[in-house]
């Protein structure tokens, strides 16, 4: 089901993609993962990453930039710059960073959402990129669609509730 008109690009977990209007950027079932959208509203070009972890420095395995908040933001900016978008014209949208096992997640080290959100805010702050829209935290799964034409964001949660930001 699509809420916006246009070809939908679905970004998998640990993935990232760059697209331009009338394309729609989407990712499914964000839990503790961080969905990061960077876009230029005038050029109508943007990118989306579905990050699992805050920091690439913790990685001991293969390098996948979309997997980590820090490298995903870096890679998105690099890809957007290649398309002629300047980083100072970018705004950000953050979705996800939930705590899927509330109350007990701290004990078992499952409270990754919090760290993801902090990392995203820090990395964007460092680059002076403004967070324009945000639907984060809580303990619920979210599927998102982002319309590059209008800059509208659709969020559908696991209870089936839909909202537009």
């Amino acid at each position: 089901m699509s809420y916006f008109k246009g070809e939908k690009i679905i970004v998998p977990m640990a993935g990232l993609a760059v697209a331009e209007a009338p394309q729609i950027l989407s990712t499914l079932a964000l839990g503790s993962c961080m969905g990061i959208i960077l876009y230029d509203r005038y050029a109508k070009i943007g990118g989306l990453a579905h990050c699992m972890l805050p920091n690439s420095k913790t990685a001991t395995h293969e390098y996948t930039p979309g997997k980590y908040v820090d490298t995903a933001i870096e890679e998105l900016i690099a890809k957007l710059e290649k398309k002629g978008v300047k980083s100072k014209s970018l705004s950000a949208v953050l979705v996800g960073g939930a705590d899927m096992f509330p109350h007990i997640s701290h004990k078992l080290g499952l409270n990754i959402g919090e760290g993801n959100l902090e990392a995203a805010r820090r990395e964007l702050g460092k680059r002076h990129i403004k967070i324009e829209k945000e639907d984060t935290g809580g303990s619920i799964g979210r599927t998102v669609e982002f319309d590059l034409q209008t800059g509208k964001l659709m969020i559908r949660d696991s209870k089936g509730q839909i909202k537009f930001l």
Partner: peptide, 19 residues
């Protein structure tokens, strides 16, 4: 909850050390 939402919370915990 959603399959992906729960799994990514769990998988993230191990993603840095297990592939």
């Amino acid at each position: 909850d959603m399959l992906g939402a729960i799994l990514n919370a769990i998988l993230s915990k191990f993603a840095a050390s297990v592939s």
